[in-house]
């Protein structure tokens, strides 16, 4: 995904001379091509996330179109006040890119786990929040995010993630149908969608065929598609790699709470606690019940009820 991102960034910068890129001293060799080609439009501000955001804000105020980049946990929580006061409040077109959200950097410890980033960014007025799940979604959504007139939070994974098949292209603000199905709909966001698709494969032989939607845009939430789906399915399963507060689950339950006929909802995702134990991503997901196998179990229960 990082290659898809650096390629997408190059294209944006080639098409728009106002695009600038700043990093909080991360992305070794990933942006060499950008820096060689665009010179001073590339800035390494150092390990200084507050400054990363404030430089982006000042440049946006001068008409530039900044893309600010750091690891997701550092890009969001550390400079939250800078994002709130200097980007979101003046509604400046800054795209904040968080690399490696969720459990991407699982073995690096709690410092590197980003399970609150979507919540923090969704809290902010004017902010668009986009969490792609594969390289294709990066390529399709990044140009759309860069057309936003205000700020956006956009995430990228690491290298080598596979691409998944989908039945629709990625459109900003619209839930993306990956697989048609019936009776229940699985909604997920970001890279955990790969586990969802694996779980659907596991269930196929049992003739359990749920719909699968990738909710790449958390804010604004596509309530039109949710409303349509609610009339077609008996339950929705939300799968997320985020704390229970502030993420996709929170957004979907808020939508559901004010419906005349609320739909049955279930969640698969991390608990409201720090994840200790230094496990790799695969094993963390198993331990906390967010892997394909666990998703399949919940899905089967909903299907058979």
């Amino acid at each position: 995904m990082r290659k898809a991102f650096s390629d997408s960034l190059m294209k944006e910068a080639e098409n728009n001379p106002q695009v600038t890129f700043m990093t909080g001293d991360l992305g070794f060799q990933v942006f060499d091509e950008f820096s060689e080609k665009f010179g001073a439009r590339y800035i390494n501000v150092g390990v200084a996330e507050a400054q990363l955001i404030n430089v982006a804000a000042g440049m946006a105020a001068e008409g530039w179109r900044p893309v600010a980049y750091s690891i997701a946990s550092f890009a969001t929580a550390r400079p939250f006040e800078q994002i709130r006061y200097c980007v979101s409040y003046p509604n400046l077109p800054v795209t904040l890119v968080g690399a490696g959200r969720g459990f991407t950097y699982s073995t690096s410890g709690v410092s590197h786990h980003a399970l609150d980033d979507i919540g923090l960014m969704s809290l902010l007025p004017n902010m668009t929040v986009v969490i792609p799940g594969d390289p294709t979604e990066i390529e399709e959504l990044f140009p759309q995010v860069m057309r936003c007139s205000g700020p956006a939070y956009f995430t990228v994974g690491r290298f080598g993630e596979p691409r998944y098949q989908a039945e629709e292209p990625s459109v900003l603000g619209k839930a993306r149908l990956l697989k048609s199905g019936q009776k229940i709909a699985i909604m997920s966001t970001g890279e955990i969608t790969h586990e969802v698709l694996k779980s659907v494969n596991l269930l196929h032989s049992e003739n359990i065929i749920p719909m699968v939607y990738q909710m790449h845009t958390i804010k604004p939430l596509d309530t039109v598609t949710l409303d349509n789906l609610a009339d077609q399915v008996r339950a929705m399963l939300v799968v997320e790699e985020h704390f229970p507060n502030g993420g996709l689950w929170a957004a979907v339950t808020q939508w559901n709470a004010i419906r005349d006929k609320p739909i049955r909802l279930q969640r698969v995702g991390p608990p409201d606690s720090f994840i200790l134990g230094n496990l790799n991503r695969e094993d963390v997901r198993k331990k906390i019940g967010c892997d394909a196998h666990s998703i399949a179990i919940t899905c089967r229960l909903l299907w058979n009820q």
Binding site: N54, V55, A61, E62
Partner: peptide, 15 residues
């Protein structure tokens, strides 16, 4: 925030 944002403006103007 003033100094940080000012550096962004300064850099943008120079650029």
């Amino acid at each position: 925030h003033g100094l940080g944002v000012a550096t962004g403006m300064s850099y943008g103007l120079k650029l």
